[in-house]
Write a protein that binds this DNA or RNA. Sequence first.
DNA 1: GATGACACTGAAAACGATTTCATACACGCT
DNA 2: AGCGTGTATGAAATCGTTTTCAGTGTCATC
Lengths: 332, 332
Amino acid sequence: MTISIKDVARAAGVSPATVSRALGGGPVSAELQAQVEAAVKATGYRPNLSARRLRSRHSQTIGLIVADISNPFFTAVARAVEDSAYKAGLRVILCNTDENPQKEAMYLQLMEEERVTGVIFAPTRASVDKLARATYNFPIVLIDRAGRAGGRDAVVLDNFAAADMLVAHLVAQGYRRITGLFGNASTTGIERHDGYVAAMQRAGLTPAARFIAPTVEAAEAETRHWFKQGTAPEAVIASNGLMLMGVVRAMLAAGKKIPEDMAIAGFDNESWTELAGPGLTVIEQPVADLGRAAMQLLMDRLDAPDAPMRKLVLGGRCVVRGSTGRVTGAAG
Amino acid sequence: MTISIKDVARAAGVSPATVSRALGGGPVSAELQAQVEAAVKATGYRPNLSARRLRSRHSQTIGLIVADISNPFFTAVARAVEDSAYKAGLRVILCNTDENPQKEAMYLQLMEEERVTGVIFAPTRASVDKLARATYNFPIVLIDRAGRAGGRDAVVLDNFAAADMLVAHLVAQGYRRITGLFGNASTTGIERHDGYVAAMQRAGLTPAARFIAPTVEAAEAETRHWFKQGTAPEAVIASNGLMLMGVVRAMLAAGKKIPEDMAIAGFDNESWTELAGPGLTVIEQPVADLGRAAMQLLMDRLDAPDAPMRKLVLGGRCVVRGSTGRVTGAAG
DNA sequence: GATGACACTGAAAACGATTTCATACACGCT
DNA sequence: AGCGTGTATGAAATCGTTTTCAGTGTCATC
């Protein structure tokens, strides 16, 4: 037997409306306020959030849709989003899409059924295009991946510049045959690829990029293949933390030395990158800022639904470690 | 203007009750079923989950309360829980307590307001005791941390045996002065400590344990301190993945060699442990099984509220790597 | 002393679904 | 023909809140 606001009202000798007002900050005399508070304590009343949401038509809930929360990048973003949301009195529904467009569509539909206030979304490439056409009952802020699809708020890394920076560093260290591994699921991979190509060409070098699934396994297989075939480049850049890990695993398994047998650079300054091999050179993304900013954009949008679209581009920081040490032998 | 079940009913030429039945699998003639489906499509109707939950009194939602989702151990458990829950048609509300008992209490209250079906909870030591006394409107399955508090379903690692196994391995490798670092927030730390002490005593060695905050930072500070003071042991075991990382960081920063300057063993077979230094010897917890089993216990409890309490104890696996290599010099 | 403004309160409607209850109809059986 | 059984349907009640609406009482103002 669950106790409702009516029970509290009876216990306090007031109407349910007054209880509601006392709890929700409405105009209530100090006397009745006290009576209600006492009655709430006495009865052990807990408001029913479903009823509240139904009647008030405020879900006080946002959706956070990402590829996979076990990817440390998204974990960090998610914590920042949750903390900001909590401070704003909002709950968060977390959804993992595994880069599957069907799951993305399903979760967006779920968000409609939950009548969420807004959504923060890291879409696959396939969905970015669909999003441009579709219209939802809630604002959406894209995160990490925006593409050129206008019309949506977004907060992303300056992927082009970051990849450029990484390649420039490798070139300055004396590397020439530099391969790039890029994820094939998101626009992020494309942008990083473009930055890589631009920097290579500026240095008079020939780009050699591979688009693969953005997973540890795919990158590991690719790298293993190189060493088996004897086609490994002098250096490789990996376009996210998972792929970076795959490359390192393959090298250790094959007994190869970093950076002597192959130099490595990548994205996402996850804590293990400091510990693996001689330390890995990476682009550090401001993950917490990314999450906070997304939340801020969402709140601003709720305040001003008709304000112009805003795309926030954050800069990365290049953290140099041993995995891109200077070439020592006779560089080809 | 949002469209409700009444609009669909009007469009289909039936009553709202029939629409509800058509959508929910009630007895409806094939003819009306088709009409309703067409009307749903035509109107773009999306059921309002708050209304549904209010009336049906089924939230179809469970709570998952853990210390910190950015701890890879909890990340892995959470994904397993979410996948199982999703298959069972349940949504998951994720809560991070940061090992703070106040947050734990607050989230448990939130779960009551959400009228969740059940809760999976990794409590701090402080809350384990409180839980034994308290009573909630939903079943709770404890995970990772149960203590001796009976009366609650739980799924945990055999912490005592695992710590014992780790120490036995170190002893077999020739180490004698073995220190243990244990987390002070959970019962898990205590159980692992007890296993450590038992194994040390069985080997005729003197235990030397430290209880500290279960964080990278605390373990790093402690280890740095040892090397500064020259009091580092021959080997250390760290009671979770975060503390293990702290130890490794401190050693690398101080320019110390693993295992020559100090051997390391720990808990949680996170992917980076294979990559750091010579590879780290760890206890692998069956994280996915842990999450799945917790979900299963919860469902069983919902089916049979009065069945006897069940505590499921899973065994760990010892993964031996280079960080506990055999002692080479003249062991003292 | 009438009047308007203001602050507080309760009765009742509303939110959007599911569920209960009553009814209508078809069917098989005696 | 009469009757029980079972299935499909709609009207209306219901879930637990918030919100609207209509007072009521107090107070300052003219």
